[in-house]
Amino acid sequence: MKNYIFGNKCIALLGVLALLATGTATAAGTRQLATGGASTIEGSAGGGIVPWAAITGYGTGDEIGATAFASRVDTGDYRLDSQGAAVGLFNRIELSLARQDLDLITLGPALGLPGAHLRQHVVGVKLRLFGDVIYTDWPQVSLGVQYKKNRDFLIPSVVGATDDSDVDVYLSATKVFLAGVGNFNAFINGTARWTRANETGLLGFGGPLHSGRRLQAEISGGVLLSRHFAIGAEYRRKSGNLSGLPEDDWRDLFIAWFPNRHLSLVLAYVDLGTVATLQDQTGWYLSLQGAF
């Protein structure tokens, strides 16, 4: 019950900031199209699985922007639904919230738990430290913190997770290269994450193999085929703290459509490897984001 109250309070706060954004920003902000990225499954601005240094939305230094998203990852054995919202304050600070729901389509019945789900709340804060994705020689660099709270800890505790909540800390650098690949603009992002999450926290935190946080690398990059379309790939290294439940790294190939500053759509092929003993978890990812 406390988790629901906590989540509702966060949503209310983001809602208030979103109302402020509508009165402060014009046409969802004035930064260039696609420079705010999309929304990750954890709520922050970025690709689908890797956060970027970009601040959500299109607000410049004197504007406030807000985004909301819904996404689904489906491998057949698992289905992960994520929804959330974020607010970008003056292209400097980002506040985000996401709710995740993992449906154990195959594993649940195999464990004698038909209809079992693993759910998680993620609350994030990101601070742009320096640089700009386009207008400076240096990349844009941001520091992010994500507080994660697992809401269904029975299964994670049985398989060896030690905690139902924890904090991820990450440092991201993002740069857009104008005409970087032929005549096309290109972008690249690198993220270093300090974490002890199991399957991003859906299986809890820590375990018998490793109890403390470790650095994990995450990268993404792509090419803007036009002002409205981008293609690219992402890679996210995973921890593996639970004995008997090795984690494979995640990767995807995506295409993103930015018809205007108010809407973005991302479609991807995902390869999650082995997830909780089930091998060859490949499938699709779809995410829709609105900016205000």
Rank of each mutant, 00 (worst) to 15 (best):
K2D: 08
G7H: 05
G7T: 03
A12S: 10
V16A: 05
A21D: 03
A25N: 01
A27T: 10
A28E: 02
T35Y: 04
T40P: 04
I41Y: 00
G47R: 04
G48W: 00
I49G: 09
I49D: 08
I49V: 14
P51E: 06
W52A: 14
T60P: 10
I64W: 00
I64E: 00
G65H: 06
G65E: 08
A66E: 02
D74T: 05
D74G: 03
T75I: 01
G76W: 03
D81P: 00
D81V: 03
A86Y: 03
A86R: 01
V87K: 02
G88N: 13
F90P: 07
R92L: 13
I93Y: 12
E94F: 11
L95Q: 05
A98F: 09
L102V: 06
L104N: 02
T106W: 02
L107M: 09
L111I: 06
L118V: 00
L118G: 00
Q120C: 15
K126Y: 12
L127R: 05
G131D: 05
I134W: 07
I134Y: 15
Y135Q: 07
Y135N: 07
T136N: 06
D137T: 09
Q140D: 10
L143P: 12
G144P: 07
V145Y: 07
K148G: 03
F153D: 01
S157R: 11
V159F: 00
A161G: 09
V167D: 09
Y170S: 13
S172A: 15
V176L: 13
V176D: 07
V176C: 09
F177H: 14
A179N: 15
F184A: 11
N185L: 14
F187I: 08
F187A: 10
N189P: 07
T191C: 12
A197T: 05
A197G: 10
F205D: 01
H210G: 07
H210A: 07
R214Q: 10
L215R: 04
E218N: 06
E218D: 08
G221M: 00
L224A: 11
L225C: 08
S226K: 10
I231R: 05
A233T: 14
Y235T: 03
R237Q: 14
S243C: 14
D252C: 13
A256R: 02
N260Q: 10
L263Q: 12
L263G: 06
A268G: 04
D271T: 12
G273V: 01
A276P: 13
Q279N: 13
D280M: 06
L286G: 06
F292K: 02
